Simulated scan of single mutants.
Amino acid sequence: MQKHEREQLLVDLYEHQISQGHINGGGLKKDNSNPEDYITKRAIVKFWEEQGVIEKTAEAIGFINFKLTAYGIEYVEQNLK
């Protein structure tokens, strides 16, 4: 997983959650036509969750929902905007 991919997920989530007002955050849904993409993005979510930047809000087979934490919002605003 590339640094740019990790950062882009945060920027996209910030735009969705903060700029567009989706307070519940965003999510990933497994796409059987490209399972490698889902696996990569899931690993990125786990990375940011371990850093305290993202919080999982729901998880089941084939999907995961998550949102930026208060620290995550600050992190994006200070480092990626």
Rank of each mutant, 00 (worst) to 15 (best):
N34K: 13
K30A: 11
L28G: 03
K56W: 12
I61H: 11
S33F: 11
L28I: 03
I61R: 11
Y14L: 05
K41C: 04
A60I: 05
M1Q: 10
R6Q: 15
E7C: 08
K81R: 12
N24G: 12
Q51E: 15
Q78K: 10
S33I: 09
G25V: 09
N32P: 12
N24R: 10
E15Q: 13
Y38W: 08
E77V: 06
I18N: 05
Q20I: 08
Q8D: 14
G26M: 06
R6M: 15
G72E: 04
E50T: 09
L9Y: 02
K30E: 08
S33R: 12
R6E: 15
K30I: 04
E55V: 03
F66M: 05
F63S: 03
K3G: 08
L13E: 05
F66D: 02
Q2L: 14
T69A: 03
I73Y: 01
E49G: 04
V45N: 00
G21D: 05
E7F: 07
D37R: 10
K81Q: 13
E49M: 05
D31F: 07
N24E: 15
L9P: 00
I18K: 03
K81W: 10
D12H: 05
E49N: 06
I54F: 02
Q51P: 04
E59V: 02
I18V: 15
H4A: 15
T57E: 14
A58G: 10
D31K: 05
I23G: 11
G27H: 08
E77Q: 11
G26N: 07
N32M: 14
A60L: 13
L68Q: 00
I44W: 06
I73W: 00
H22S: 14
I64M: 13
E77F: 02
I73M: 02
N65D: 15
Y14A: 01
D12N: 10
E59M: 05
E77N: 04
R6W: 12
K67E: 06
L13F: 09
K81L: 15
F63R: 08
G62T: 00
L9A: 04
V76N: 01
I18P: 07
Y75H: 08
K46W: 05
Y38F: 14
R6T: 02
Q17P: 01
K41S: 06
A58E: 14
E7H: 10
E15Y: 11
P35H: 06
A43M: 14
A70F: 07
I64R: 00
I61D: 15
K30W: 07
G21S: 08
Y38L: 07
E74Q: 10
D37Y: 09
Q2K: 11
H16Y: 12
